[in-house]
Amino acid sequence: MKRVIALVSVLGILIGLTLVLSGCKSEAKSYPSKSISIVYHSSAGSGGDIFLRNLGKALEKQLKQPIVIENRPGGGGATAWGYVAKAKPDGYTLLGISSTIITGPLQTPMDVNYKSFKPIAQVFYDPTVIFTSSKSEFRSFKEIIEYAKAHPKEMKWGAGSPGSAESLTLKYIMNQVGAEIQVVPFEGGGDVAVEVMAGRLAAGIGEYAEIAHLVRSGDLKILVGLGSERIPGLPDVPTLKEEGVDFVFEKVRGLMAPKDTPDYVVQKLVDAIKKVYDDAEFKKYYTESNIIPLFRGPEELSKVLDQQNEFFKSMIGK
């Protein structure tokens, strides 16, 4: 036992020494001179986390510094956001965002919201779609809405939890077309897909990425997409606008930084992000994962977030 303890302590001292020595590299003026962490509000293995890990790997090649994904789940996002808002604005702590950064603070009161951060860029958007079982009698969005109008409160649709982007947009769409349905909340799009396939739900709303493989295998069919344009690879699926509802929703995936991060750091990151789309491995990842590349710089991102914030704010009150 004593030998074990001695061994372990020697090991400990050695590790300690290497760490101290490796840290002594002088800090260069140019950014980035050390590893960058990207903080995310859900745990390792969740959809957004895997996206960031892949993005991080592609960015590493551009910035020539390691990128670490830090998962700080908890508090419905408040833990991660509070941490980054208070972090040193030196560009070494960044925040990965999804649409939760808008809906989260609207649902539960928090000290932070998207305005507590400096926008860097939107990198992708997640297409949101309305889908039904391929065995379903409804062949188009118009058909299903007509049925819903004729049978108020009868149809059951699956969506995310009450405050989620999916639930709120679905509510808005139904208000617009003047139909009444019953929404059954689920934790994720995969669960909704099962219920829709099994015929227990008439239709569902969710991220295209989560159900794309079920569409390809012929189990589900997409009635309508919520984006501004038709989804690449799905030329036959109309957008909501084309179906007569003037509404666009595109889930943001992007990066933000602490408020006082210097502009040259943001610029450097923006330049690097612009280049990652051509990274062969990363390209393979995002095309296979069915997220759509969409670059928006700091000002544009800030505008989009403002719009979405206004929209969800108005929906949550209702």
């Binding site: 303890i5 001695a6 372990v8 302590s9 090991l11 400990g12 001292i13 590790i15 300690g16």
Partner: peptide
Amino acid sequence: AAMAVGMTAALYA
């Protein structure tokens, strides 16, 4: 002392 240093080092590792 051995435990304090050793365990911390092991956990850190």
